[in-house]
Design a protein around this nucleic acid. Structure first.
Lengths: 271, 271
DNA sequence: CGAGGAATTGAGTAGGTTCAAGGCCGGTGG
DNA sequence: CCACCGGCCTTGAACCTACTCAATTCCTCG
């Protein structure tokens, strides 16, 4: 029942006809359907984007959390440096992702954030956070869902690192990228932008660059992927997905259940 | 600056003189100071406790999320079964922990929960959740912090699984137990209740029972720990902590920063 | 006292690391 | 236009940590 639910990857966008061109809207709309007002608020957010070069640190371990951001373009990651010089990449921040909105509850953050490519982000000031909480309850709900999704992604990571071999881990990472890109309307077919170097993949999956390289060779030899010039094509997505042991909707994109909606309406009436 | 911050373990209870006998109160008080009203609400919650035997499943992967709970006594865990019969334990639910309160935002849960020992829990009905949101803003805030703490614990897990060898992982697990127990006022000295079997430790850390056994032998030989009859004593906590590469306050127990308090007051006035 | 789960120990194996060298490719400067 | 440089990728060989399989002992509990 559970383990066998490995069906084909689908870009599921329940309650939405087609993904919005604005990636924040596209992402959050998976969780809750937003009002016109919500949408235009998010679009306004994206008007003044900040450009950040590759390899620039957006935050450092130990910092007091500062303002929040939303990623409009590019790729960033949370990571942790180890005493011996190695590092572990924790999570990726992709277009449509938010971060730092809950961080004001912590005195310091336990990870650093770095831009892995040239990146554009929309800063979210306190004033705007307040505006969201006071006037955009559906965005608040969607951001909750976003937080739960992040936690779910971390759990998947733990499972792969704890019980998966190198091939499973790499397959998982590629599927994660494909699914998350599709969730915001990027990566139509099975080809996607994969800006990570093999060393960065290794840092993500707890492997060495050398071994990542060998796994990739295997996948290429088997005709499962093509990867060159930062473009990754997944032929045989089904095979990869099965290898990665991913089940449908692991991103929890199918919206909140009926009971949850009723409860929410009770807690925070939307109109 | 950051990496070298490995000082000695301390049971830090900022803003609170001594931990409350009620473990929910003790836990949440680390994040926000609760009012008398908040405290008596939590105490009332614990009056009708549900007893659950060892090895009983509290939830199954794929289930629609049901009611929430708080753990009053015992130990439970979230876990995931693998297709090949192995399993990965994701997180531990210890006395003072809450779960299922945000789950109503998801259509199904991606993990199972099982009681690892005889456990007592306080069920949290929807009505009570509503009461919390409407009348206990400080509890709401503390529950947010609790969620962030859970995410931080998952990140630590990823780091250990990704970049730590077996010794580091075991050392980390023991430190996590000690710190979390201390956070709710259990485990005064360096001795604590460790109900996990070696197989369960293995399932947590992505190892085999055999290898866990060998690591434990090493630690015993070096006089770092004593472990027998489910009682674990950490002599040389400092050594373990250094091995585990844990920095101070990784549980984020030192309360929310001033700026966060002001923001919260603005968003949800506490009186 | 018996039974079954848990812990322990040994020996052989394998997946991934380490170290090291060489090749590819894009960018830069003369 | 070409030569050089540096980052990234690739490949080989030796090594090592942790796994596998299997047998034995220890505990605990009925």
């Amino acid at each position: 029942m559970k383990q066998s639910a490995h069906s084909t990857l689908e870009a599921t966008t329940p309650g939405r006809s087609r993904p919005s061109p604005n990636l924040l809207v596209a992402h959050l709309s998976h969780f809750v359907s937003l009002s016109k007002d919500d949408i235009s608020f998010l679009e306004t957010l994206c008007e003044k984007q900040e450009r950040v070069q590759k390899a620039v640190n957006l935050a450092e371990e130990g910092d007091a959390p500062s303002r929040g951001f939303a990623i409009c373009r590019g790729l960033a990651c949370r990571y942790r440096d180890m005493p011996d010089g190695r590092r572990q990449i924790l999570t990726f921040l992709m277009p449509g992702d938010f971060f730092g909105l809950h961080a004001f509850l912590m005195k310091s953050i336990d990870y650093s954030i770095i831009a892995m490519t040239p990146t554009r982000l929309a800063r979210i000031e306190q004033a705007q956070l307040i505006e969201i909480v006071e006037h955009h309850p559906r965005i608040v709900t969607a951001l909750w869902c976003h937080t739960m999704q992040e936690a779910a992604l971390l759990r998947e990571r733990v499972v792969r690192l704890g019980r998966g071999n190198a091939h499973i881990r790499v397959a998982y990472l590629f599927c994660e990228f494909l699914w998350r890109y599709r969730a915001v309307g990027l990566g139509e077919d099975d080809t996607l932008w994969m800006p990570l170097t093999q060393a960065e993949i290794a840092d993500t999956l707890g492997l060495t660059p050398v071994h990542v390289n060998r796994v990739l060779q295997d996948f290429r030899r088997d005709g499962v992927i093509t990867l060159a010039q930062r473009r990754l094509t997944l032929h045989r997505v089904d095979r990869l997905q099965e290898l990665a042991q991913l089940n449908q909707d692991y991103l929890h994109l199918t919206g909140i259940p009926r009971a949850g909606e009723r409860l929410l309406e009770r807690l925070a009436p939307s109109q």
